[in-house]
Design a protein around this nucleic acid. Structure first.
Lengths: 246, 246
DNA sequence: CAGCTATTGTGTATAAATTACACTATAAAC
DNA sequence: GTTTATAGTGTAATTTATACACAATAGCTG
């Protein structure tokens, strides 16, 4: 009787050994997604951070991230994380870069895929206050947990580059916006001052802004006209910059 | 005696169960790196491919890739793969994007990080002939193994974009090159025709080309002057394009 | 309701960059 | 020395970017 149990136990051990060696031999690593979520409020570009859940980084802020489960795609994981942690959905999400330094995570090898997201702060009254989420000015970001400082800086640089080449910025604004709001947005993202007349000329020349024949409300001065961005017209347009310059 | 063995075996099972559940709970996945290696030869842009080692894809070509081991970084893995498979080292390597569709690999979940590499075909007399490596014209690439077609297309598009904004192209040329070679390179990468005089004007205006006071050899016509690209001067230059256009 | 304040809305002149385009010069091949 | 293929060069026209100033308007204040 005992011999039978021993034999059964030994068989089980054999099975475990096989499984274990398979698992180990496949060289698996943990994979996570970290989201750099940008917003625009009070003429400042903001990024959404959460208090780190690791003791080592207990006083630091970190990006919103989570492990990718074996049966979900990367984009899928990014959307899940955003929805779980903020309640947001249907927002602009784009992969930035993957960070895979061996010791970037103190607990174990974790490779992370960074995603950049843009949200309209007005639209999304997120459930921020209950948990540890906070908006931070991008120019006050220092000393994030893990290698998140580097991830943030990479994402921010990439945003600055992409916003000049693609109409991303409108994701950060209300559907109806004035040209001043648009210019403030560009000035905040690119951290530069722009000439107002030339800025207007440029955007009107692009011809993707639709005059809504409405004006701003509740501004303590002469109100400006409101516009929306015509994505359909943009998609139809073919003229791309093809120059060479570096 | 047998009881002792049984007890020992049961303890071992307990240990295995703990390890297994840890391993599973950490949600690990296999991670690979795939390299898209571009070269320029006979006025054509080429990409280096290898015969697929999977039966399922036995008649197809695939990118050069391998699993990332748990103790190596991503860039490190990319360099290792290139060196192991081609003997190449010290070449331009840049991360492109990460592909993580759940079923992109037929055997198991494998997330892959794509890298783009540019080599000077003259310099690198690779040990191609012995193994299954071959250079393919980029415009003849169809139906690669796995999702490598998509990875290739993404990398090629990104190369077209980056080569217009950064002096990458010179990595594909000999150190000494004529302006015709340079123009042929740009025409091949971007798949367009350029006006010769305006092309020269543009590059001379950039002022990063150093006249070597040498001329081409072995051309069946009037030989052109040879130049090199002044990387140091380029690095020192600060003028970047800051316009907005889309 | 008069005057103040802040911002909107507009045009032009200049400079810079891009594009289109044609002929002479030169080395190699024969 | 003739042919062939490419090197090397300049200018005018167009487009795009930049610099810059003033009148109009709505809200606010007293």
């Amino acid at each position: 009787m005992v011999e039978h149990m021993l034999e059964a136990a030994q068989n089980k051990i054999k099975t475990f050994k096989t499984i274990q060696s398979e698992v180990q031999s496949i060289n698996k690593v943990a994979l996570s997604v970290d989201c750099v979520i940008f917003g625009f409020d009070e003429n400042k570009l903001k990024v959404l951070l959460i208090r780190s859940d690791l003791k080592k980084y207990q006083d630091k802020w970190s990006l919103l991230g989570d492990l990718v489960s074996p049966d979900e795609g990367l984009d899928e994981a990014a959307y899940r994380i955003l929805k779980q942690r903020t309640g947001l959905r249907d927002l602009f999400l784009e992969q930035v870069q993957t960070f895979g330094e061996v010791n970037r995570h103190p607990a174990s090898r974790v490779v992370t895929v960074a995603y950049c997201s843009l949200i309209n702060v007005q639209h999304h009254k997120l459930n921020i206050l209950d948990n540890e989420l906070h908006w931070h000015d991008v120019d006050s970001i220092t000393d994030l947990a893990f290698d998140h400082q580097k991830i943030f800086e990479t994402s921010y640089s990439q945003l600055q580059k992409r916003v000049r080449e693609h109409p991303l910025g409108f994701s950060l604004l209300p559907n109806k916006f004035s040209l001043r709001e648009l210019q403030n947005l560009y000035e905040a993202i690119l951290n530069i001052k722009l000439d107002r007349r030339n800025f207007r000329k440029k955007f009107f020349a692009m011809d993707f802004l639709v005059d809504l024949n409405e004006i701003e409300k509740d501004v303590p001065h002469r109100p400006g006209k409101l516009y929306r961005f015509d994505y359909a017209k943009y998609e139809r347009s073919t003229k791309k910059w093809t120059g060479i310059a570096f």
